[in-house]
Design a protein around this nucleic acid. Structure first.
Ligand code: FES
Ligand code: FES
Lengths: 144, 144
DNA sequence: CTTAAAAAGGATAAAATTGTCTTCTTATGT
DNA sequence: ACATAAGAAGACAATTTTATCCTTTTTAAG
């Protein structure tokens, strides 16, 4: 569905966002530890997210990653777009080069509804709303 | 969403199934050509599908691949299972090792509904029904 | 029985994704 | 200014997925 990198990215964003009220920055290491990903690889992902202004980074001592208020409103769709692109929501299930009502594959009319729904759901869910669920203790970011 | 191999597999099955009334066998080459995949790679995929009895093969001159009547009832889900496994329908969107109501990630309750719906749709759609849509001319297997 | 056509199987290779290591840059406190 | 702590960046390595090539086996027709 979505790539491993993208899953790391979503978890990282939600984790960082969940710290916004504590007004602390979290380091690459802390994030990598939380999301159970290799540190250096986590770094790469955080870099991309920072470039896209999905999270914010600050170098130097006492530096790290954090979310600005406006960034809490970022839809999860933007994370997916930043890491994997939007192909998963647009491509044909059967691999035709174009997915369209005009030249549909046999699964198109059944399947494209689900794709749309999925994309809508990803675009309406914000990083902040997921962080809130975490904070409320209704859900988890780590295994066990 | 699903792998390139799996897309090839679905298209291959539907193509083979669409020939069932003509009572002909189709060769690896013909299939590869139709689904726009490399011949040898198509061979590997057809091999797996044959092993799982999703399609049937016959070696030798006048040999090739075909669908037996009962195979038309095979759900698309079985093709996905044969090539990619069912992980896409079961795994956590955010990458937790287990997806469950007891230990949900923040996206779980929103997302797992869609996953279920998708899996249901894949399990209720048969190879034969897709082949029929092709035959009716309502849909296409090739680009352009 | 021989020949030939086709799929099966195994070994390799290319490309994409995921992961690692080292050096460079920036910010902070003294 | 200096030392240090952190992310940024680039080169490289491992793994997985996709693709190729060659040989073997099976089958049908003559
Ligand atoms: S054309 Fe295949 S899903 Fe739209
Ligand atoms: S736990 Fe993440 S989708 Fe179910």
């Amino acid at each position: 569905m979505i790539s491993k990198s993208c899953k790391y990215a979503i978890r990282a964003c939600v984790f960082v966002a969940s710290k916004v009220n504590d007004d602390v920055k979290v380091s690459m290491k802390e994030i990598a530890n939380e999301i159970e990903a290799p540190v250096a690889f986590t770094g790469k992902i955080l870099q991309m997210l920072n470039k896209r202004r999905i999270i914010t980074s600050l170098k130097g001592p006492y530096g790290g990653f954090y979310c600005e208020k406006y960034q809490l409103e970022t839809p999860i769709l933007e994370i997916v777009n930043a890491i994997d692109g939007l192909a998963v929501f647009k491509e044909c299930v059967m691999g035709l080069h174009q997915c369209s009502d005009q030249h549909p594959c046999p699964m198109h009319f059944e399947y494209s509804k689900t794709k749309e729904a999925l994309m809508k759901s990803f675009s309406e869910t914000t990083i902040g709303s997921l962080a809130d669920k975490l904070i409320d203790g209704n859900s988890y970011l780590t295994n066990n």
